[in-house]
Design a protein around this nucleic acid. Structure first.
Lengths: 185, 185
DNA sequence: ATCCATATTGACTATTCAGTCGATTTGAGC
DNA sequence: GCTCAAATCGACTGAATAGTCAATATGGAT
């Protein structure tokens, strides 16, 4: 693994554990087993390190979701696939999930960053379809995406606290019905 | 206003603007027009200041919600009343809202803090009723409260960005239907 | 008037931390 | 085996910043 990757991996872990305000850059470098200087060589400021990490995580979620979608699916099936992909991915990457939540509720985060996510864009397209076809309640599409996203987050937190339910696909599909009922007409 | 109140009021504003990690205690004291020392007299650590502020905000939301509920309401009406009270209160106190979001996604926050909120307890009682009466989907009541809470938050963010809708009660009741549809059987 | 706990001040400190920099190493291309 | 840019090191710095403390003020109770 390159030192750059090593740094990101270490930062992800430490940021999840102590928050990025609670994690000195020097500690990231130390735990990654590299020098302080090389951190700033790859990430000129701490903010750039934090943002890069976030972008990276979101890209990986998107890539995973892409492997799950399939042609010929109904709208509901597509939304379910994305919803489930996101839930599963976050369950399997608790460090990324913790970090993501902190980042999205920090002053770093804004609508430009949000819209630039390919995962958000993919959802937006589906939601717009659903609204056009009057399958969904008539609201601003980005708002509906946010509703779904917040329900994914609440769901993941819930499953993380109830590990016994984590492999129960029937339960997860009941959880999805909550989200679906919220947005459907 | 007492110096203690002055400090809390100032902290609320600054924390909302720059986050509590981005706000030095010295600045809070300075902007409040009091000495540095008196801040630590009332709040021995910054963490205590932050937590006190959070508790205070939650108490005020609860008190406001209490003024809105009324006897003889149906379950749906009661849930709506609480939902709307929370939305309205957050809309009218954007600084508190910003701060609250940051706090709830910071390492300070945990389930003990959450459960201790009287506002959460009040919601819990209603939700438990609804589940017992099979009006709601059968899930862990605290989870259902969290679903409602996260939908309140998403709703408030949405209305804050669309000021033209902020006084549209018919629109707000449509927004509530999303939350209701999510949890109802 | 005196007492005393509490309120209040603001200068001070000890530490922490993001970011710098000059020196050294590496390795790919010629 | 020379050259040069990129990688890597780690000691260092300058600016913050949470929290301390000794001194003084205030005001209510006796």
């Amino acid at each position: 693994m390159s030192k750059r990757e090593l740094l990101m991996k270490t930062a992800r872990r430490l940021f999840a554990e102590n928050g990025f305000y609670g994690t000195p850059t020097a500690l990231v470098a130390k735990e990654a087993g590299v020098s302080n200087g090389i951190l700033f060589h790859y990430f000129p400021t701490k903010e750039i390190l934090v943002s890069s990490l976030y972008q990276d995580i979101k890209d990986r979620i998107f890539n995973y979701a892409m492997t799950q979608i399939y042609n010929g699916a109904t709208l509901k099936e597509s939304i379910y696939t994305l919803w489930l992909a996101s839930v599963e991915w976050n369950l399997e990457h608790p460090e990324d999930f913790e970090f993501m939540l902190q980042f999205e509720n920090s002053p770093y985060y804004n609508e430009d960053v949000e819209r630039s996510q390919r995962y958000v864009q993919m959802n937006l397209e589906l939601i717009e379809q659903g609204i056009d076809q009057a399958v969904f309640k008539h609201f601003n599409p980005l708002f509906v995406v946010r509703i779904l996203t917040s329900l994914v987050e609440t769901t993941v937190k819930h499953l993380n606290k109830n590990q016994n339910l984590i492999d129960d696909f029937e339960y997860k599909s009941r959880l999805f019905e909550m989200a679906w009922d919220a947005i459907k007409k």
